[in-house]
């Protein structure tokens, strides 16, 4: 597009400039811009091809990653650190994640926090299946990742990825809250790059 002799590429609008010229929102568009949604819509990524769906993807992903609601399912030691993460000092409310749901039907995210025994495994699987799509799983701690210190045990599952798909693994026994936060950030990055365009192979 030619404008005053300067070529402006609509895909590479510098979103930082929009923020710099910020004033009190008056029009509906400016109010929308104030929420940050328009920035996400306008944000251009290096993806080639399917421009229409990528911007929609970005808006959807932004919504999804900003309010991940975890299901309350502590299994063992790591569950205590899960409580510590959700308390004031480490405060996962910063990620919009403090809403621990008692029912898996209302949750987007499952922390498999602790040792998954063979007796508990069908229940964990059922819990995962009860969650509505889209859903993500973070496997926390050595026990859930591989069996950990209980790898030789006769009654412990050797990794929760034997029964359900896992998005992010957090190592540690139990992981420090900082490690949890890093794992959560990794999951957010992952969700950011998801999308229908990616799923259907449209933007190749």
């Amino acid at each position: 597009m030619e404008k005053g002799g300067i070529r402006v590429d609509p895909v590479t609008i510098d979103t930082t400039k929009i923020r710099m010229t910020k004033r009190k929102p008056e029009t509906a568009l400016e109010k929308l811009e104030d929420t940050g949604l328009i920035n996400t819509l306008l944000a251009a990524k290096d993806r080639e091809g399917f421009i229409l769906l990528t911007t929609i993807d970005q808006a959807i992903n932004w919504g999804r990653l900003s309010s991940l609601w975890p299901v309350t399912s502590g299994l063992a030691c790591c569950a205590i650190e899960m409580m510590a993460v959700s308390m004031a000092h480490h405060d996962i409310a910063r990620f919009g994640m403090e809403v621990f749901r008692a029912s898996p039907r209302q949750a987007d995210l499952m922390f498999v926090a602790g040792t998954v025994t063979k007796r508990m495994a069908p229940r964990v699987k059922q819990l995962y299946e009860m969650m509505a799509e889209p859903k993500w799983v973070i496997s926390v701690g050595s026990c859930a990742n591989t069996g950990g210190p209980y790898h030789e045990s006769y009654c412990v599952l050797k990794g929760v990825d034997n029964i359900i798909p896992v998005d992010v693994y957090i190592p540690g026994c139990p992981p420090r809250p900082e490690a949890w936060l890093y794992g959560i950030i990794q999951l957010r990055q992952k969700i950011k790059n998801e999308g229908y365009g990616v799923k259907w192979g449209l933007n190749k």
Binding site: T115, T117, R119, M120, Y150, E152, S153, Y154, C155, V156
Partner: peptide, 13 residues
């Protein structure tokens, strides 16, 4: 028994 990890057996192992 949902968190039975066989700790006592580990004592012997």
């Amino acid at each position: 028994g949902y968190l039975h990890r066989g700790t006592e057996k580990f004592g012997e192992m």
